[in-house]
């Protein structure tokens, strides 16, 4: 990799592996996951529950122990750094959590909440705090009177903005957002997404967004990485992954992504529940539910193949596509094939 290409990367994860122990049985939540985020880019990590995407986010921010793999941030290997050594890293790599109703201490005022990281890193002196907080609140579109309130008196959208203001205070170069808008109403989602986009433009931030909604992700991400049961199964530019998914799971997920235009697309309904991560199927983890699975899929685990800026882990990539449905009423379904 050339030096300039390396300088373009702000975050690199290689062969991450995370295992939980439930009694004696190991639960492999993350299995050989690699990804790269370049400067100024927005990468979306997409998957359903059990995909391991949140565990990856936690591993990247070093709150989840890794059983293998490396994490490089701004060129430095942060995989084994102690908590003390991580402090300067945390200033530059911030995270916004999913639940705005839980990520703010209900006993503190907004001012104290936003000021906490600033004081901890001694970025701002005590007397400057009120002004700095006011400025940060303004950046996220909240008025100065919000500083005196407690989270209980704020709406979900407002709380998430406070969480973002708190993360921005340290002027990080990268933000990892775990489902930043899932808990919010649709119109508020749009507001927060627009805010994140504006901040990215102004500050040149890089984003890693964890999400489950492909429509949302198509709108805000440059690249999409799809995960299933702990593995990366597809990766590519957002527009392409959505218009021409290579992995059948991505296709199924796409089909299950409901928008107001849902009546008009073909629907692929997967059978059964996703298997538990305690009993990951042999071969391709998706094969029991895959509409186009063949014997090879149960026997061998498909390697990741790359072509250009797209990659996929499937023996039959691109075979399962959605066909647009013509003039069918909203309540009928069709099987994929």
């Amino acid at each position: 990799m050339t030096e300039s290409a390396a300088a373009q990367e702000i975050l690199r994860a290689e062969n991450l592996r995370a295992v939980f122990r439930l009694g004696s049985r190991p639960l492999v939540a993350v299995d050989d996951v690699s990804l790269v985020v370049r400067r100024g880019e927005t990468v979306a990590l997409v998957g359903e529950s059990g995909s391991g995407k949140s565990t990856v986010a936690r591993a990247l921010t070093r709150v989840q122990p890794l059983a293998g793999g490396h994490v490089y941030f701004e060129g430095t290997d942060i995989t084994a750094l102690s908590e003390r050594a991580l402090r300067p890293v945390r200033r530059r790599l911030q995270m916004v959590l999913q639940n705005p109703y839980a990520s703010l201490d209900p006993r503190l005022t907004v001012q104290r909440i936003v000021a906490e990281p600033l004081l901890s890193h001694k970025v701002v002196a005590g007397p400057q705090i009120p002004d700095t907080v006011r400025m940060l609140l303004d950046e996220v579109g909240l008025g100065p009177e919000v500083a005196r309130r407690r989270p209980a008196n704020l709406s979900g959208g407002q709380r998430q903005r406070v969480a973002i203001a708190r993360a921005l205070g340290l002027r990080p170069s990268m933000l990892i957002a775990d489902e930043p808008v899932s808990a919010l109403d649709v119109s508020v989602q749009a507001q927060v997404v627009r805010l994140l986009a504006r901040i990215q433009e102004l500050e040149g931030l890089s984003y890693l967004i964890i999400a489950h909604d492909l429509a949302l992700v198509r709108q805000i991400a440059d690249r999409i990485v799809t995960m299933y049961l702990g593995r990366v199964i597809e990766e590519g530019p957002a527009a392409e992954v959505v218009s021409e998914p290579l992995h059948p799971y991505t296709t199924a997920l796409l089909s299950a992504t409901l928008t107001s235009a849902s009546g008009r697309r073909e629907r692929i309904v997967l059978s059964g529940d996703p298997p538990s991560a305690l009993a990951i199927p042999a071969g391709c983890a998706f094969h029991p539910r895959c509409p186009i699975a063949r014997p090879r899929c149960a026997a061998e685990r498909p390697p990741t193949e790359s072509a250009g800026d797209r990659s996929v882990a499937c023996f039959y990539p691109g075979e399962l596509q959605l066909r647009p449905r013509m003039g069918s009423p909203p309540s009928s379904t069709a099987q994929g094939g």
Partner: peptide, 15 residues
């Protein structure tokens, strides 16, 4: 305000 899959529809316009 809702996100769209169709690139020709803008989507995510806040109220």
């Amino acid at each position: 305000a809702a996100p769209t899959l169709d690139p020709s529809r803008p989507g995510m316009i806040p109220i």
